[in-house]
Structures are given as C-alpha cells and as structure tokens.
C-alpha cells in the first residue's frame, strides 16, 4: 500500500502600501532656482514559503510500525519582526485524512493521520485544519531568491500515520493534498 501526502505551498503577502503625498515644488524665477523632489520607496511586507517536498510512505510488510517522516522547508519574511502566521487547509475535508482514490464512490476508505509543525525556534506543535499558528523566521531568515536546501531551511513539518490507522485499510493508494499558507504577522 502506497500512501502519498502532497503539499501545495503558497506564498501570501499582506499588502499594506503606504500612500504617497505629493510634495514636489517648482523653483522660482530668479538668478538661480531650486526644485524640491521627494523620493519614496515603499517595500510591502511579504512572506514566502517554499522548498517542501511531497511525503510518500509505503506500509511495511509486518504492518506494525507507525509511519513517520520529517522534512525541512523555508519560510521567508521581510518584516522587521519576522513574525508570521501559518494555517493548513485541505479541500473538502475537515480533518487530515488520506483517501483511497480507487474505492467506489460513497465508500471511500480513509486513513487518519497528523501533522506536526515546527518554526525556527519552536518545538513541534500539532496542526489542526483552519487554525493559525504564529511563529518566526528566526535569525536564519533565508534569502527568498535562493533554492531552499538544508543549509537555509528554517521550518519543519512532520507527518505521522499510526499503524493502528492503516492496519485495517484496504490495499490501494491513499492521498490528500494539504495547503500551507503563511502571512506576515
């Protein structure tokens, strides 16, 4: 039995542009003349989440071991505090639950599982769909233009499928797509 957990990761920026006031002034007519010009640059607060790969499990032959895997990924924020909020969502479900796509309609087999999340300076916390988790990018705040590798990763996700949850499941391929969204906090 193959169990796949696909993660679609989105970047979300909370946009709070400042409005510019017009203050440029023309010079006066005279022997010399001066104009004043304001230069303004507004850098909007944004975050980026990237570098997380899919989780993929295959049940062991003895069907007794819990399935668990941990992956690192990157979260960048350009705010001074580096704080962000993360929320998980899935399509059409209220729980983390892998579904057998080959089962007959209305009779889908499913396997509950759990996801743990850990920010740069956090301990693992269990995620619940729709709940916001505050965290911080930490001192490593990765450059958003680089590939996310273990050298710059600053967040972790851990997926746990207890043996009790899959031991009764029918053979097949089970999966679920989870979306993680971060916003500046």
């Amino acid at each position: 039995m193959k169990i796949t957990l696909k993660n679609v990761l989105l970047t979300a920026g909370a946009l709070s542009f400042s409005s510019f006031t017009l203050s440029a002034t023309d010079g006066r007519l005279g022997q010399e003349s001066s104009a004043v010009v304001d230069v303004n640059l507004s850098v909007s607060p944004v975050v980026r989440i990237w570098g997380l790969e899919d989780f993929s499990f295959t049940t062991p032959a003895n069907m007794q071991n819990d399935l668990q895997e941990e992956k690192a990924f990157c979260i960048y924020s350009n705010t001074r505090s580096g704080d962000y909020k993360l929320v998980a969502s899935v399509h059409g479900k209220k729980d983390f639950e892998l579904t057998n796509q080959q089962s007959a309609p209305g009779n889908k087999d499913s396997i509950p599982y759990s996801i743990g999340f850990k920010g740069a300076d956090d301990e693992y916390r269990d995620l619940y769909i729709g709940e916001h988790y505050g965290s911080n990018v930490g001192a490593k705040n990765p450059s958003p233009t680089l590939e996310c590798d273990t050298g710059i990763a600053n967040a972790n996700l851990k997926v746990l499928i207890p043996a009790d949850n899959y031991i009764q499941a029918k053979e097949g391929e089970y999966n679920q797509t989870v979306t993680l969204t971060v916003t500046p906090n």
Binding site: G13, F17, F20, L22, S23, A24, T25, D26, G27, R28, L29, G30, Q31, E32, S33, S34, A35, V36, V37, D38, V39, N40, L41, S42, V43, S44, V46, R48, Y76, N78, P144, T145
Partner: peptide, 25 residues
C-alpha cells in the same frame, strides 16, 4: 534684461516594490 532661470515641472519619485520583483528600479 536680467539673467533669469526657473526649474519647473518636477514630480515626486515614488516606487512600490515587493521582494521577488526586479531589484533594479
């Protein structure tokens, strides 16, 4: 006729930039 000069028509220079956009403005 005296020397006279005037600078006019200047406007403020404003940018809004988001990381990921072209860094050269």
């Amino acid at each position: 006729v005296r020397e006279q000069i005037k600078i006019s028509g200047m406007k403020d220079i404003n940018f809004r930039w988001t990381p990921g956009q072209n860094q050269a403005i």
